[in-house]
Simulated assay, not measured.
Amino acid sequence: MRTAIEDLQVTLSGRTVVSGVRIVAGEGEVAGLVGPNGSGKSTVLRTVYRHLRPHAGRVVVGDRDVRELTAAEAARRVAALPQERGSDFELSVREVVAMGRTPYKRAFAGDDGRDAAVVAEALEQVGMAGEGRRRFSALSGGERQRVLLARALAQDPSVLVLDEPTNHLDVRHQVELLALLRQQRRTTLIALHDLNAAASVCDRLHVLHRGAVVASGTPREVLTPALLAEVFGVRAAVVEHPLTGDPLIAFDHRSPVAREVPVA
């Protein structure tokens, strides 16, 4: 489902943290938000899943402003895996994932066969099949991450919002998660620190710097040595990945670039 962030401005404690942000994710597109810490990535995503109310501008999912939807309608359209994640659920893995089915139920309704099938499929997708009876609170950080992703998938949203979803995952599960996102072809907004992962999984990238979008385009168009120097303050070469053909950033760890290097 097409998602448009239109002229977004967010003010927190009297300080404007993002301003004039415009981002469009087409139906089935994986749109990446990248930028240094404090650039506004998480703030923008929080407005999409209604954790924050913008001071100006709006977020349109499909043909509706998300603020005009009921809570259940919004949850059927948008599912999120935020950075702020509960870690003390005294529930089983299956019960946590089944929470994703709540927007489709009447109050106090139990699970039916359809719910059970969706939950089982979500656990299979994240590599946690057969773990449904384990206590969520007993899981490792990476396992919790995968279970919470399964909960978002069980919600069967039109739009998936992921804020640093590869945190806590080992290399294998990072690769599997990114491959899953590409296979799903579900409209996805994802914030990533790992620029090579972003280049691999995203159809388009939106670079945020000091609360504004400073570049948008395909990974190949956006991830240039000049932009990496200006926005991230690093010296790097961009080459072709030998296995996938995606842009691959090789960072110079010995000679960080001066921050005043201008974008060409």
Results as ranks from 00 to 15, higher is better:
Ser87Leu: 10
Gly62Thr: 12
Ala56Asn: 07
Ala79Cys: 12
Ala56Gln: 12
Pro54Ala: 09
Glu68Phe: 00
Gly62Asp: 11
Ala56Phe: 07
Leu69Met: 15
Ala74Asp: 10
Gly86Gln: 12
Glu90Ile: 08
Ala72Met: 08
Arg67Gly: 13
Gly62Leu: 05
Ala75Arg: 01
Thr47Asp: 06
Ala75Thr: 02
Val44Arg: 07
Asp65Leu: 08
Glu73Ala: 10
Ser87Ile: 15
Arg46Thr: 01
Gly86His: 03
Thr43Ile: 09
Arg58Ala: 10
Val61Asn: 00
Pro82Ala: 12
Pro54His: 05
Val61His: 07
Val59Cys: 02
Asp63Gly: 15
Val48Gly: 06
Leu69Val: 11
Gly86Trp: 08
Asp65Met: 06
Ala56Met: 11
Ala80Ile: 00
Asp65Cys: 02
Ser42Arg: 01
Gly86Ile: 07
Val48Ile: 15
Arg50Lys: 11
Val78Lys: 00
Phe89Glu: 14
Val78Thr: 15
Pro54Gln: 00
Thr70Cys: 03
Ala72Glu: 08
Leu91Cys: 14
Leu52Ser: 05
Val66Ser: 04
Val44Thr: 15
Pro82His: 06
Asp88Asn: 14
Glu68Pro: 03
Glu84Thr: 14
Phe89Gln: 09
Val48Asp: 06
Ala71Tyr: 00
His55Cys: 09
Asp88Leu: 13
Thr70Pro: 02
Arg67Phe: 13
Arg58Tyr: 02
Val59Tyr: 04
Ser87Gln: 13
Arg76Asn: 11
Arg58His: 06
Glu73Asp: 14
Ala72Tyr: 02
Glu73Gly: 14
Arg76Glu: 10
Ala74Phe: 05
Pro54Val: 09
Arg58Gly: 07
Arg46Leu: 07
Val66Lys: 04
Phe89Thr: 09
Pro54Thr: 05
His51Trp: 00
His55Asn: 07
Val66Cys: 07
Arg67Trp: 11
Ser92Pro: 08
Glu84Trp: 05
Arg85Asp: 01
Leu91Val: 10
